[in-house]
Design a protein around this nucleic acid. Structure first.
Lengths: 245, 245
DNA sequence: TCTACTATTTGAACGTGTTCAAAAACCTCC
DNA sequence: GGAGGTTTTTGAACACGTTCAAATAGTAGA
């Protein structure tokens, strides 16, 4: 219809195909948020987007692929937000608070979509399984984003290795909790999050207490070895869990 | 076809309907184990069971309901096994070992079916969500079975409240790991399990150390309060997570 | 044995996600 | 502007889980 003459120089990358793809994505997001993932059909999406069913499938190989795209986009938005606001936070508490709160606020409106993400963890072969092969890179990024909150902390080797993964697990748990939390404004999840983070900081204090070193260090070391052995680790190429052996 | 004349007195409860239902269940189990849940069609099941599609649906309201029945049957088999063998185990280690090993051995052959169970956790409304409303009773039983391993232990109030739930979470984690573990005989999962249990016992030692009481007790108390507040608790009617507030 | 009722079985039909061959639009080089 | 090629769009078709009205088998009371 329209030749895109207004933007000859700015983004030369917005091809027609990309515009269609975005139209599918945006329409799907609106419908998913409104009715939920399962209640929205691909036919609904293509109809609302003003195109044929096959067209939507040309741009997204499956319905879940749309969720996957959402997953990527929130992750990168979160990462951007965190890197931007990191300098403003002075203490560890502040950094953890900022990192976790921004994540939660970001996905707060998408509660009904989270289910669609958690749904696929049961299938190791499934591309959307958070623990699986295909989301490995995404999961690595997610851990890296959270690890930014630990920047500059003096941590023992064991803690430095384990904590980012533990934070990731905590975040996953909180997102799962969010999914079930229909309290107003999801305040329950926010409270649980604050308490969890306070506890984390407190535990970190215990772990760093030199008097308790002899008790704590061997345990941490053992936990680390155990997770390594089970390949639930972060050492160089981080799989979390792919098909094992 | 056959009038069942051989059992006039033994089980008066095996009606024809029950026999058909069992036929559906058994056929489904065979196919699920062989090809996996998703790869098995309701049409496959009904054909192999020698009946029409609608008949299978008369006895099970949905495909997932068959998994649900499996879920119940393993839980009760596990419980029976544990109560029977509990007396043979003298130490805490032995009891934990027996309880966890028997569970794992029981579901070992059903790896491919576990995915179908984990799949539904994403949806709070879904009857098969392990955290949800409808599986509450089943989850309570599961925790109770695991708690049998702690019978007779002297535990502080906080630990006594938290540990069973922690064991349940551990078991869930191990089952998820099992799902991804295609190592021969699932030895990776067994090893991870043994290590986790050893660590559990070791941690229990730390927690019980009277010298560390002042450090450990307030933390445990706080964790307990936090989970209570978030309704992730076991106090009287245990919800774990249902739709919140 | 017949009658009325219930429990069970049947397969056609529906809505879904997905696939695909063909049509249409677009692009590039002459 | 037209020929040849590629990208995008289209809607019919498929297999699946599920529903349902109708057919059949079973049962209990006369």
């Amino acid at each position: 219809m329209f030749k895109d003459q207004s933007q000859t120089s700015l983004p030369p990358e917005e091809t027609k195909a990309e515009r269609t793809r975005r139209k599918v994505f945006d329409t799907a997001m609106t419908l998913f948020r409104g009715r939920g993932f399962d209640e929205t059909t691909m036919r609904d999406i293509s109809k609302d987007a003003g195109m044929a069913l096959g067209t939507a499938y040309y741009h997204f190989p499956s319905k879940e692929a749309i969720i996957s795209a959402y997953y990527e986009s929130t992750q990168s938005r979160h990462h951007a937000y965190v890197t931007e606001h990191l300098a403003e936070c002075k203490t560890l508490q502040e950094r953890l608070h900022m990192v976790f709160h921004s994540k939660l606020e970001q996905v707060q409106g998408d509660r009904r979509m989270l289910g669609a993400i958690f749904k696929f963890n049961g299938d190791p072969k499934h591309p959307l399984s958070v623990l699986g092969d295909e989301t490995r890179e995404l999961q690595r990024q997610s851990v890296a984003t959270l690890a930014l909150a630990l920047r500059g902390e003096r941590l023992g080797r064991e803690v430095a290795e384990l904590l980012p993964l533990a934070l990731w697990a905590l975040q996953m748990g909180l997102l799962l909790y969010l999914l079930y939390d229909s309290s107003e404004g999801q305040r329950r999840t926010f409270r649980l999050m604050d308490q969890s983070l306070a506890l984390t900081v407190q535990l970190l204090g215990v772990v760093r207490n030199p008097l308790l070193g002899p008790v704590v260090t061997p345990i941490l070391r053992q936990v680390g070895q155990m997770l390594d052995d089970a390949q639930i680790s972060l050492k160089d190429r981080p799989p979390i869990l792919q098909e094992l052996k």
